[in-house]
Design a binder for these strands. Structure first.
Length: 214
DNA sequence: CCGAGGATTATCT
DNA sequence: GATAATCCTCGGA
């Protein structure tokens, strides 16, 4: 068991600002251990950073409320909330305690437990859409509000992140974040805090522009 | 208390 | 591409 078993990333990994953490998470592996011991996992290929009281796109832009409170929590904890009444969205809390910041995990490349993920997704599932999108990946891994505020650095919680591969900068594309509301003004509307693996089939819609980085 | 809107996705045309 | 699904959260009255 030496060297071959990856252990969860430590809280220190998530302590830098959310933008750096979002970039660093590309290539890491999100792991879910089901109650029966089954291991599901996928490689993170798309993230978004939400940080600071100033960021008008972030839930942390307003005072602490019952919903957004986890964003002020310890680095490496989970912030899971319901979107549109249907979909659970998984974020990892970044930055030191009392600094409201999180990284939204938007897409995974499925690695382990594909059959179980397909079962979780129901009849609508196709292999290419399994974990492409934040709502879909939560469904596939059976992540729900029950995971809110849990520590992703503690394997006992059944959900954690392991070190994976490193994507060099020339394989990473940045883009404005998805789903900005009308009350999000510049610079927050266009700031390129969405990180995607270039040309990866599991990056969600809308696909970022593939304009060459020269 | 009530209304508006949402870090989305599936299913139409 | 347009829109419905679906319900919680927040802010204002």
């Amino acid at each position: 068991m030496i060297g071959t078993t990856s252990s969860p990333l430590l809280p220190s990994f998530f302590r830098p600002n959310a933008v750096k953490v979002a970039r660093a998470l590309l290539g890491a592996v999100l792991v879910r251990r089901l109650d029966d011991g089954t291991r599901l996992s996928g490689r993170i290929v798309e993230t978004e950073a939400y940080t600071g009281h100033d960021d008008l796109a972030s839930h942390g832009r307003v005072r602490k409320t019952p919903r957004n409170l986890p964003m002020w929590g310890a680095p490496g904890h989970a912030y899971v909330y319901l979107c549109h009444g249907i979909y659970w969205l998984l974020n990892v809390v970044a930055e030191p305690q009392e600094s409201p910041a999180a990284v939204l995990i938007r897409a995974l490349e499925p690695l382990e437990g594909l059959d179980r993920m397909i079962a979780h997704r129901g009849k609508k599932s196709s292999l290419s859409d399994l974990t492409r999108g934040p709502g879909r990946l939560s469904m596939a891994l059976a992540v729900t509000g029950a995971h809110n505020t849990l520590s992703l650095t503690d394997p006992a919680c059944g959900l954690w992140i392991e070190k994976g591969i490193h994507y060099p900068d020339d394989q990473v594309i940045t883009a404005p974040r998805v789903g900005m509301g009308k009350n999000v003004s510049e610079p927050w509307y266009s700031i390129p805090w969405r990180f995607c693996v270039r040309d990866h089939p599991f990056v969600s819609d809308p696909r970022p522009k593939l304009t060459a980085q020269e």
